[in-house]
């Protein structure tokens, strides 16, 4: 198994993208993105050009991690849904299958109730794709970039 790496192949990546696009349309959101708990952006949909998605991904993961810490202090496993209300835009953050973070940014065209409802449906689909990712990881003995050479690494650092 490809230990220590999270490897995403084209089929599952496209699957994530399709699921996010559907969620974006169904929930009338501005932007939707999927992050792993370490803060890496996996996929996104919507008006991403207006946002610094790398920073958003990192802070969303930090947010979930911090509230997870708070949860364990009061004997909860996790707070699986976070909602931040702004003057113009709102943010709905939820944990998918204990490993991924789904972030939806929406304005007054939508509502927290609708987003919550659509997120629940999308999460089921995302979980299914994640299972495929895991199955491939189990089947892939080597994983990673096995053909990487010392010269490749040196050339990057020049």
């Amino acid at each position: 198994m490809a230990q220590g790496h999270f490897i995403l192949y084209d089929k599952e990546f496209q699957g994530f993208q399709i699921a996010l696009k559907k969620l974006l349309a169904d929930s009338y959101a501005k932007i939707v993105f999927l992050v792993d708990k370490n803060g890496s952006l996996l996929a996104s949909a919507g008006e991403t050009a207006d946002f610094d998605t790398t920073s958003l991904a990192s802070l969303a993961a930090g947010n979930i991690a911090a509230t997870g810490g708070l949860a364990s202090l009061i004997g909860e496993k996790e707070f699986s849904i976070l909602f931040h209300e702004g003057e113009r835009d709102n943010m709905h953050i939820s944990v998918v299958a204990d490993r991924l973070i789904l972030v939806v940014i929406f304005d007054r065209r939508s509502s927290v109730g609708l987003v919550r409802l659509r997120v629940r449906r999308a999460s089921t689909q995302l979980e299914r794709i994640l299972r495929d990712v895991d199955e491939k990881a189990l089947a892939d003995e080597d994983g990673g970039i096995e053909e990487l050479t010392e010269e490749d690494i040196e050339s990057l650092l020049k």
Binding site: G4, H5, L8, D10, G143, G144
Partner: peptide, 12 residues
Amino acid sequence: MSFINYSSREIN
């Protein structure tokens, strides 16, 4: 845990 995306050809 590094994240390798074969679709967008990225290593994080």
